[in-house]
């Protein structure tokens, strides 16, 4: 009797587990494509704001390589998207991670033109203090636009810092750590692109970015 009731309970529980998993699996199957498409579109919108669309005729999201440069880009591996016109390289877009934000890592998107100038910098995700450190978001303040057109020679390397450290870039009232670490990360990304040079454009493209899980 006792065995029977235990078995029955187990069976009912099992039935619920199977039903639940089936429902989730079916829904996942149904909306999977749509979710991937959302992620792709969201990424594309971000790229479009920092790349000169009229000078590009490829889809940088489909033309990416994975690189491993922890010292410069902050993460074990990061994606590099290449923008081209025909065969000519136009720009690369990097995804550096700022390891030393005030409240955890900050993910950036940095586009570097072929001539070494910055096309644009955007913050993808961060945990900085609302109202202070979050002025790095383009929707909250124009600070991040300061980087447009800068390069390793403009300002010179030793001026790549916030004003408090004798550099060229503004800090925020009440928040120096966030801008300081971002300026540093952008500088490192520039150094990395400078070192790699043409090699970044020659590497064979990886699988299309669409298929990859983005978190």
């Amino acid at each position: 009797m006792k065995t029977k009731s235990i078995l029955l309970a187990g069976f009912v529980l099992g039935a619920f587990a199977v039903t639940g998993v089936t429902l989730v699996a079916l829904t996942h199957k149904a909306v999977d494509g749509r979710i991937a498409d959302n992620q792709y579109q969201a990424m594309k919108r971000k790229l479009d704001t920092i790349l000169p669309a009229q000078r590009i005729d490829n889809d940088p999201l489909q033309d990416s390589v994975q690189v491993s440069a922890r010292d410069y880009l902050g993460a074990e591996t990061t994606q590099v998207y290449r923008a081209r016109k025909g065969e000519d390289p136009v720009a690369v877009v990097l995804e550096p991670v700022v390891p030393d934000g005030y409240a955890g890592p900050i993910k950036l998107l940095v586009s570097v033109m072929h001539d070494g100038t910055i096309g644009g910098v955007r913050v993808i995700s961060h945990h900085e203090t609302p109202g202070l450190g979050d002025k790095i978001e383009e929707t909250k303040s124009a600070w991040v636009l300061e980087f447009n057109g800068k390069s390793l020679h403009n300002p010179p390397l030793e001026k790549w810092g916030v004003k408090r450290d004798g550099g060229e870039f503004d800090q925020f009232t009440g928040a120096t750590i966030t801008p300081r670490s971002i300026v540093n990360a952008v500088k490192n990304a520039l150094i990395y692109v400078d070192q790699e040079g043409e090699a970044l454009f020659k590497a064979k493209p990886a699988a299309p970015a669409q298929a990859q899980e983005r978190t």
Binding site: V24, V31, I35
Partner: peptide
């Protein structure tokens, strides 16, 4: 189990 399944469904639908 019931709640976890529904939450996952809501999450997927929201993502989509």
């Amino acid at each position: 189990l019931v709640i976890a399944s529904f939450v996952t469904l809501v999450e997927l639908i929201m993502q989509a």
